[in-house]
Amino acid sequence: MKRILSLIAVLGIACIIAVQPTVAEAATSFPDVPENNRFHDEIQYLVNKEIISGYSNGKFQPKRNVTRGEAAIMIGRMLGYDGRPTATRFTDVTAQNGASGYISEAAVYGIISGYPDRTFRPNEYITRGDMAIFLARAFDIETGSIREFKDVREQMKAYSSIRNIAGDFITTGYSDGTFRPASKVTREQFSAFLARGLSPEYKQRTVKKDGYSRDMTKKYVFSSPNGDIRMEYKKTMGQFGELHYAGFFWVIQGPKSGDIWYIQQEETDEMLIESYPFSNYEIALKYPVKVGTSWSGYGLSETDALKITGVNKTIKTPYKTFTNVVEVNEKGYKHYYVKGVGHVKTVDPTGKLVSELKSIR
């Protein structure tokens, strides 16, 4: 089996256009959005990007439900639509509707859709299911997720979209394992979803605090016998076989010019996985972490299962010496993981170095 983290496998590459939004300092504050509001930073981030705004009384009304028309406005601003009022294909959205320009353009580009009776129903509150559909299209997300929700079934219209935004760290659902697709969306919630779609900083806030995944806001450098390997989570545009995609990936640059890999990483309460886009995923760690835990990997037989062989290892790397390191054995290859950092080192069956962490910044 060729390990992703060992950077042995080779993937066909495409051109990359990198966009790394940064979180700006808040330029505006609302009296009803104090700093202790869970989504304060996300709201201010979008205000500074002129994607959302408050009301004439100076308030933001974070708990107010979002209408379908308001959602179209915010998504349209995010995508750079001009928003000039215009006639639309929907019988209930005339040029007199302030959201008509955004609704019309979003419909043209296939971001939003109406109902079979040719209405859009701009004043209806948007549901979490419809929100997932709109955002998956707006951010062009198609790679799915290993996360399952108790109340999301394959027959649902929003099924794929919900899985897509979950895999892109836009939503995590609720603590009871549900997504609640029929529930309404508040202004603060919608702000959080948009901010997560745009910035790794807000994506990172959705992950397990005590997990073993890499930090999406950091750049990693690994040393290897052939030279340095660089890893950065960023927005890219590329082509994978016949599929086109624009979204966030871990982009890995190998020692040689032109050596590029795209990797997805996702973590749940059950496992940490990595995969190539539109491909089978590999389980890097199985939870709970304890010696003797084993699992089968993609393309491996039961006798070749991966196994946790240590949980309190001390491992030295050029970056630093780590303690309480988890060791995973895979057919003699040993992979080492650190809580809050991720994969830090791999050695081959003879003990020779494959890769080790050199720097994080």
Rank of each mutant, 00 (worst) to 15 (best):
F248T: 04
P21G: 12
T346M: 02
T293E: 09
K49E: 12
R118C: 13
S296N: 14
I263H: 10
A99W: 15
A107W: 10
D168I: 02
I170E: 00
E356F: 05
N57A: 13
R121N: 10
E188V: 07
K286S: 04
G310I: 03
R361L: 05
G342L: 02
N164F: 04
Y276A: 15
V291D: 05
R153G: 05
F190Q: 07
A24M: 08
V108H: 14
T88Y: 04
Y233D: 05
E201F: 14
I141W: 02
T293C: 04
L306P: 07
R187T: 07
F322G: 10
F190A: 09
V289F: 00
E154R: 15
K209F: 11
L300K: 14
K331E: 11
E201H: 10
G98K: 12
V341Y: 05
I162C: 11
S301E: 14
S104R: 08
Y298P: 00
E42H: 04
Y174T: 00
D151I: 01
E282Y: 04
K290F: 05
Y336K: 14
E148H: 10
W295Q: 03
L285R: 00
E142P: 01
T217F: 06
Q204T: 15
I229S: 12
Q239I: 12
D215Y: 14
Y115E: 06
S213V: 15
E232A: 15
M237G: 13
T186V: 05
H343G: 01
E50T: 09
L306D: 14
Y159V: 05
M1P: 12
P34D: 11
G238Y: 11
Q61P: 09
E154W: 05
P21R: 09
R205W: 11
E270M: 01
N57Y: 08
E282L: 02
A106L: 13
K234W: 09
K320Q: 08
P225T: 07
G173W: 00
E50W: 04
K150P: 03
N36F: 07
T86P: 06
E282K: 01
A87P: 06
D210M: 09
T309F: 02
Y159H: 15
E270W: 00
K59D: 11
N37R: 15
